Amino acid sequence: MSETNARLRGLLIDLDGTLYHGTSRIDGADRLIAYINEIKLPYQFVTNNSSTSAEEVAGRLSAMGIPAQASDVCTSAQATAGYIADQAPGASVFVIGEVGLRSALQEAGCRLTDDEQPDFVVQGIDRSMSYERMARAVRYIRAGAAYVMTNPDLLLPSSDGLIPGAGSIGAMLQAASGEKPVVIGKPSSILMDYSLRRLGVHHEETWVVGDNIATDIAAGLAAGCKAVLVLTGLTHADNVEQFTAAAGCRPDRICNTLDDLRQEIASNLSANSMCRED
C-alpha cells in the first residue's frame, strides 16, 4: 500500500502554480477547495510570499472563485515573525521587506528599528529597497545581528516577466556580510512546521501539495509529511524526472490535475473508513 494511503487528517496547499497562475485560476481549484470544505478536512494555504498579508492573499483567492479566509492562509512573513517571537520575544528588528512582513513582525510583538543596532536583520522581497538600506543591513549583520530571510526564491513572476526575488536580494547580503541566514520559507521545514502547528495536525497525517519539487515537495518531506506533486504549474510530465533528479527528492504521489488530487483524497478517506469499520 502506498505511503499516501496512511490516514489523512490535513492538507498544506501551495498557491501559485498549484491553484492559480498569476490572476488565472487553474482548472479544478474551485472544485477541490469546495470539496475539502464540504468534508471538513483541515487545510492551510502555504506561500513563500512575504510581501502581502493573509487578508490580501485570501481576497485574491476569493476574487478568482477559490473560497478563502485569512485564517486559511499561512505566509512566510507570519512564520518568520513567529520564529523570531519564539527566539527572542520583543526583539528589535531591522527590516528589508514590504508591508506584509512589517505587519506580521509588529503583530508578533517585534520592535521595528532603523537607527540602532538591532537583534535581527529580517529580509524578504523589497521592490523599493535602496542601496543605503542594504548597506545598513550589512553593517548590522557584521556587528552581530542575527540574519533571517523569509524565503530563498531567486525569481518571481510579474506582469513584466520574471523579476529578482528575496533570494537574489539575500545573495547580495550574504556576499557582503559573510553570513548565511536562517531561511524560513520552502524548502525549509520551518514554514511547514509553523503551518502544521496552525493546522493542529501531526506531520505524518498531513499531505503537502505543490507543483515545485525543489520547494514544495522538498519542504514537505523535510517536515515529515507526505508530499503530493500536481502537474499544474512548474512541473509537468516532460520535465518531472529532470526536476526530481535536480532536487534530490521524489514525491510520494503525482497527480496530473486537481480533479485527480480530489479523487486521491476521496479514495484515501474511503479506504481508511472501511479499515476502521473492519
Rank of each mutant, 00 (worst) to 15 (best):
G210W: 11
E55V: 07
T244A: 09
M1T: 10
N239L: 03
A143L: 10
P118D: 06
Q106C: 13
C275G: 10
E204S: 14
N272S: 07
D27K: 15
Q263P: 10
N5C: 15
G170V: 07
D30S: 15
T232F: 05
V46A: 09
R127D: 04
A81I: 05
I96A: 06
R262N: 06
G161K: 04
N268Y: 08
R136K: 14
G82H: 13
Q69H: 10
D86V: 14
E38R: 15
G97I: 00
R136H: 04
D16S: 06
Q78W: 03
T113S: 02
I84K: 01
M1N: 10
L173F: 11
A175I: 09
E132S: 15
T4K: 13
N272P: 01
R139I: 15
G248E: 03
R142I: 03
V122D: 02
F94A: 04
D160V: 11
I66T: 04
S130C: 06
C255K: 01
P118H: 06
L229N: 03
I254C: 08
V73N: 03
G22Y: 07
F243M: 15
A70E: 11
Q106F: 07
F120Q: 06
A246K: 07
R102L: 10
P187S: 08
L155A: 13
S76H: 02
L19S: 02
I33C: 02
A63E: 10
L221T: 12
R127S: 10
S62N: 14
A171E: 04
V93F: 09
S158K: 05
S188D: 02
M64R: 04
G210T: 06
A34M: 13
D30Q: 15
I141S: 01
R197H: 12
V208D: 00
A85K: 09
A218D: 00
S51H: 02
A176Q: 07
S62G: 12
G178E: 01
G100P: 09
N212H: 10
P89V: 01
L19F: 08
Y83P: 05
T23F: 14
A219V: 00
M1K: 11
C255R: 00
S168T: 14
E107V: 12
I36Q: 00
L162F: 13
L269C: 00
A143F: 07
D114K: 15
K186V: 08
S51D: 00
I66N: 02
S50K: 09
A214R: 11
E264S: 14
R133E: 09
E132G: 12
R250G: 02
A91L: 04
N272I: 06
Y131C: 06
D115Y: 14
P164L: 03
G224C: 07
C74P: 05
M64K: 01
E264N: 08
M192T: 13
R133Q: 15
E264T: 13
A271D: 09
L61H: 00
R133M: 12
A104H: 03
G17A: 03
C74N: 09
E179H: 15
V148G: 02
I36N: 03
V240W: 04
M274V: 15
V57D: 01
T18Y: 11
G165E: 11
A54Y: 05
G210F: 09
R7K: 12
A68D: 04
Y131L: 08
S188N: 05
